[in-house]
């Protein structure tokens, strides 16, 4: 079980960049064997929390317990029980698959005599059996990810931490990767924490947490999160957002979110809203949709930004 207790983190500033608070009093707890997905806009604190859990960053305040042990006080014990998959592959691409695995074994003190047996054990689900002696460079993105997963499982961790693990994978490999991780979790009974932007990856998740501006805004089972915005919602794109918004303002029981090219409406009686909007603005409506809320809709509702807007924002931050 992982317990994050009142963790706050502030990046120290320097002459060029001012300091920045990345996490504000975050509390979390993960049951052993569960699958936890952490999501939120870039710069919201996701990566910081991930780095703190891996032990490569120490928080300004707060405590972390892993299976009852203080993770910040005894980092080496914790390092032994976690496996980490980074966003950028932590492999030496000039070395072969086997050489990379051997380095991992060396770092975790796995005896040479046991290494090959362990590799063989974990290769059954991969397409790597024939390619152990090829360099990582020559593998496809999907296969390289498999190498990484085989690698971090070699020392039999109790907790698997993954930072955007499906970055750079095509949809097919992504699905395969997701399936594999879930199977491994169930077989080995390990706890999985994963950060991701891709909501379809939450299908097996026991919990989804949304973090923004360093605060935990939601943390619940995906079904509960979806239910939180009702069973239906309405999306309207129109040429005259102001006029439609004004009409909607008469419905006090609903909540309206305005985005760059559409309005998102949750709550209230959908039929009444539609009747009212169509009666007054039919000619201005470009598109009108009723849908069952997805996790992505929950994300948009909570963060106030669509994924596209999140990305544009990240681009802006990068260029400025």
């Amino acid at each position: 079980m992982i317990v994050v207790e009142n963790v706050s983190h502030r990046y120290p500033g320097n002459r060029k960049t001012p300091g920045r608070t990345a996490l504000r009093s975050v509390d979390l707890s993960l049951e052993s064997g569960s699958f936890f997905m952490l999501t939120g806009p870039n710069g919201g604190g996701k990566s910081t929390l991930f780095k703190i859990l891996c032990g490569i960053q120490r928080p300004s305040e707060g405590r972390i317990f892993i299976d009852g042990q203080d993770a910040l006080a005894s980092p080496d014990t914790i390092r032994r029980s976690i496996g980490v998959v980074f966003q950028h592959p932590a492999l030496d691409k000039h070395l072969t698959v086997h050489e990379n695995l051997a380095i991992h074994a060396g770092l975790y003190g796995i005896p040479k005599t046991e290494l090959d047996a362990r590799i063989k054990d974990s290769l059954s689900w991969t397409g790597l059996e024939e390619r152990l002696d090829e360099t990582v460079e020559s593998l496809s993105g999907g296969l390289a990810r498999q190498v990484e997963l085989v690698k971090v499982l070699l020392h039999r961790p109790k907790i698997l931490l993954m930072d955007e693990p499906s970055t750079g994978l095509d949809p097919g490999s992504r699905r395969a990767f997701r399936k594999t991780v879930n199977q491994i979790r169930l077989d080995m009974g390990i706890t999985v924490l994963m950060t991701s932007h891709i909501f379809s990856e939450a299908e097996h998740a026991d919990r989804v947490a949304i973090i923004k501006d360093g605060k935990l805004l939601a943390n619940d089972h995906p079904d509960t999160l979806r239910a939180s915005i009702g069973s239906e919602m309405v999306i309207i794109s129109t040429d005259d957002m102001d006029a439609v918004e004004q009409t909607l303002a008469h419905h006090t029981e609903i909540s309206v979110q305005r985005h760059t090219d559409h309005l998102r409406i949750t709550g209230g009686n959908v039929v009444h809203i539609l009747e009212d909007v169509l009666e007054k603005h039919r000619s201005r409506i470009r598109q009108l949709a009723i849908k069952r809320p997805t996790l992505e809709d929950v994300y948009v509702r909570i963060t106030g930004r669509t994924l596209q807007e999140t990305e544009e924002n990240a681009q802006l931050e990068k260029t400025s």
Partner: peptide, 13 residues
């Protein structure tokens, strides 16, 4: 930042 060293840093060494 994007290579093998990441894993060395989280290893119990």
């Amino acid at each position: 930042n994007q290579g093998l060293l990441q894993e060395v840093l989280v290893a119990p060494v």
